[in-house]
């Protein structure tokens, strides 16, 4: 495993702590620092071996470049993905905490702009029959209205190449991996919620139970084992596509070759890595 100090906070943190301790005892600079860098690297390697889920033993993050595709034309709004994500990742089961969610866009006849619903809408919470929604459902409040068009848009963390959430974290608890996934070290997060504010896509939430920020990891514990993210796995319509851009035959490589894609809020310079097909000008 190759760990760059810039991208792996464990490495950087261990290094800084050890370096701080060294300064305290007044050890001389160069040899001591060299020794410490080696020691820190060794400690990260030990940690990695002792932690089966992250990073997966034997997984080389320099060999992958993950990306995600969403074909909105294929999404039927069944919300199985939302349910699977909540189960897989221990996301609180209320309608206000999501790693992924699905928005419903409804254009009614005679109206200028769409009605946009998510699972957090009061009507949908009621339709799901409880405050703690399970299973997740949309209500049919437009059943007696005339529709011009309607569609669903799955949303999740965009794992931006220039993530504002990583930029603002005061302790470096959130970081971008070499394979292009934005993760949070929840044992290190202080719970200031600055990253939640900084995310332009509303993809982060604060986990009150743990006192830390949380978000989609593209199921990093699964993809590093060669599995698909839970939401992709359960999507029976093929609306969600995931894969490795380094592999030209992967689902995502073909998705990007075969479609004209767009990203959300391209104007703010975050360079998202979730690519959309079939969304409308009103999707934000």
């Amino acid at each position: 495993m190759s760990d760059s100090p810039d991208t792996n906070p464990i490495n950087r943190r261990s290094f800084l702590k050890l370096a701080g301790a060294t300064a305290a005892v007044g050890a001389t600079a160069v040899e001591a620092l060299n020794a410490l860098v080696e020691k820190a690297a060794a400690s990260v390697a030990t940690e990695a071996r002792g932690t089966p889920s992250f990073p997966t033993p034997g997984y080389d993050w320099t060999k992958h470049r993950w990306a995600f595709g969403v074909d909105s034309n294929l999404c039927a709004g069944c919300l199985a993905c939302v349910e699977a994500c909540k189960l897989e990742n221990g996301v609180p089961k209320d309608p206000h905490h999501f790693r992924t969610w699905v928005e419903r866009y409804v254009y009614l006849e005679g109206e200028q702009s769409p009605r946009v619903d998510s699972e957090a809408n009061a009507g949908d919470i009621a339709a799901s029959n409880a405050r703690f929604v399970e299973p997740y459902r949309y209500d049919d409040r437009y059943a007696d209205k005339k529709l011009e068009k309607s569609f669903f848009v799955p949303k999740l963390c965009n794992h931006c190449s220039r993530p504002p959430c990583v930029q603002v974290c005061p302790v470096g608890a959130t970081y971008r991996t070499e394979d292009g996934v934005v993760l949070i070290d929840q044992d290190y997060c202080i719970g200031c919620r600055y990253c939640v504010q900084a995310c332009p896509y509303g993809a982060r939430y604060f986990n009150e139970q743990l006192g830390v920020a949380d978000k989609c990891t593209w199921c990093y514990h699964r993809i590093t084992k060669g599995l698909k993210p839970a939401c992709v796995e359960v999507c029976c319509h093929g609306a969600r596509v995931f894969g490795d851009l380094n592999d030209p035959e992967s689902d995502i490589s073909r998705f990007l070759r075969d479609n004209r894609v767009e990203v959300l809020k391209p104007e703010i310079g975050t360079h998202p890595n979730v690519y959309y097909v079939g969304i409308d000008k009103d999707v934000r």
């Binding site: 950087r12 930029q167 200031c192 919620r193 604060f206």
Partner: peptide, 24 residues
């Protein structure tokens, strides 16, 4: 306000300088 106030000093021990909060 912090979710884990016991970790607050991490902001001084290992500040992440690109954050506007780190220097506070």
């Amino acid at each position: 306000h912090l979710g884990n106030p016991e970790r607050a000093f991490e902001a001084m021990i290992t500040p992440h300088w690109s954050s506007a909060f780190a220097a506070f």
